[in-house]
C-alpha cells in the first residue's frame, strides 16, 4: 500500500514539475504564435528562437519589488496569488498519461491517481481556483480590482454550470466519471459498414464538445472572455495592485489552467492517449497542443465580449443548448445506435 502511495507520489511530483516547465514555455509559445499572427517575429534575442525568454522573464519578475498597497487587506493580499497558483496544477493528478508499465520490477501506473469521481474533481478544482482571483481583487483595496474580482466571480459561476452540464452527455455514454474508464471506453473502435471509426466522444457528442470548449475558454478567463482583466476598462482588473512574483503567480495559474483544461478536453472528447497507432502519452500531447494553439488563435482573432453579451451568451444561448444535448443524448442512447 505504501509502495503504491510512493510510486503515485513520484509520478505526481514529475507531473507537477513538467507542468511548471511547460507553463513557462506556454508563454513563449503564445508570444511566438501571436507574433506570427500579427506579422512579427516575437522573442528572438534570448537564445535560439528566443527559447530562453521565459527564464529571463522569470528572473526579472523575481527581482521586482513586491508592493503591498497601504489600504490592502494584508494577509489575504499576500496569500491570494498562492491559492490560484497551488490549485491550478492539481487537476492534472487525474489525467491518465498512459496505462501501467513495469519499471525495475515495480508496477507503475502512468497516472497519479484514478479517482472514481475524477471529472467532478477537475470541475470542483476549477471553481475553487477562482477564490484566488476573488480574494486578491477584494484585498487589493482598489475599485478596479474589486470590480474585476466580481466580474470574474459572476463569469466563472455562470460558465461553470454550462461546463458541468455539457459533460452529462459524455457521462451518459461512458457510464463513469473516472477519466481512465472514459479513455478505455473511447479506445474501442466502432465499425460503420466496414469502416473503422474510433469511438471518440467528439464524434458522438459534437454539441457537447462545442459547448464545453466555449465554457472552458470562459472558465480560464481567456480572450475573448477575459473581462476580469480587461486592460482597456479595468486597467488589469484583479491584479492591478500586484507586482513582481505575486503578479506572475496569477499568470502562471492562468497558463497552468489552460494546459490542464486542454489535457482534460483531450481526454474527455478526443480519446486521450488513444491513437491510430501506438497508444501513448504522445497522442495526448499532440491533442493538447491543438487546444493550446486554439486558445492563442482565439486571442489573435476575436475582440472582447461586452459584459451583457457575455452573461447573455451563458444563460440564454448555451444553457438551452446544454439541456437539448442532454435530452437528445438520452433519447439516442435509449432508442438509437448503441441502445442498451
Amino acid at each position: 500500500m505504501y509502495e503504491h502511495l510512493i510510486s503515485s507520489y513520484i509520478v505526481g511530483f514529475i507531473v507537477l514539475n513538467v507542468l511548471l516547465g511547460l507553463m513557462a514555455y506556454m508563454t513563449w509559445f503564445e508570444r511566438k504564435v501571436l507574433a506570427r499572427f500579427q506579422d512579427r517575429l516575437g522573442p528572438t534575442r534570448t537564445g535560439p528562437f528566443g527559447l530562453l525568454q521565459p527564464i529571463a522573464d522569470g528572473v526579472k519578475l523575481l527581482s521586482k519589488e513586491d508592493i503591498i498597497p497601504a489600504n490592502a487587506d494584508r494577509l489575504i493580499f499576500l496569500v491570494a496569488p498562492l491559492i490560484s497558483f497551488v490549485l491550478a496544477p492539481l487537476g492534472a493528478a487525474v489525467i491518465p498519461f498512459g496505462r501501467s508499465i513495469t519499471l525495475f520490477g515495480y508496477n507503475v501506473d502512468l497516472y497519479v491517481t484514478d479517482l472514481n469521481i475524477a471529472a467532478l474533481y477537475v470541475l470542483a478544482l476549477g471553481s475553487i481556483g477562482v477564490y484566488g482571483i476573488i480574494l486578491g481583487g477584494y484585498a487589493s483595496g482598489n475599485r478596479y480590482s474589486l470590480l474585476g474580482a466580481l466580474r470574474s466571480a459572476a463569469q466563472v459561476v455562470s460558465y461553470e454550470v454550462v461546463l458541468g452540464l455539457s459533460l452529462v452527455g459524455v457521462f451518459i455514454l461512458s457510464g463513469s466519471l473516472s477519466l481512465l474508464q472514459i479513455v478505455n471506453e473511447q479506445s474501442q473502435s466502432l465499425s460503420f459498414g466496414g469502416l473503422q471509426v474510433p469511438n471518440w466522444y467528439i464524434l458522438s457528442q459534437p454539441l457537447a464538445f462545442a459547448l464545453f470548449l466555449v465554457a472552458a475558454v470562459a472558465e480560464t478567463n481567456r480572450s475573448p472572455f477575459d473581462l476580469p482583466e480587461a486592460e482597456t476598462e479595468l486597467i488589469g482588473g484583479f491584479h492591478t495592485e500586484y507586482s513582481g512574483f505575486r503578479f506572475s503567480f496569477f499568470f502562471l495559474a492562468e497558463y497552468i489552467n489552460m494546459i490542464v483544461v486542454s489535457l482534460f478536453a483531450s481526454t474527455l472528447f478526443l480519446g486521450g492517449i488513444d491513437g491510430p497507432i501506438a497508444d501513448g502519452v504522445w497522442w495526448l500531447v499532440i491533442k493538447a497542443l491543438i487546444f493550446l494553439f486554439f486558445y492563442v488563435w482565439l486571442r489573435a482573432t476575436l475582440p472582447r465580449f461586452r459584459y451583457d453579451q457575455l452573461m447573455g451568451l451563458a444563460w440564454k444561448v448555451l444553457m438551452p443548448l446544454v439541456f437539448l444535448n442532454i435530452a437528445l443524448t438520452g433519447l439516442i442512447r435509449l432508442f438509437g445506435i448503441g441502445a442498451i
Binding site: 500500500m1 503504491h4 502511495l5 503515485s8 507520489y9 505526481g12 511530483f13 507537477l16 497551488v86 496544477p89 492539481l90 493528478a93 497519479v112 491517481t113 484514478d114 479517482l115
Partner: peptide, 10 residues
Amino acid sequence: VDYGVIGLML
C-alpha cells in the same frame, strides 16, 4: 491512497 497522493501534491 487515491486521495492521499493529491494531498501530498497539494
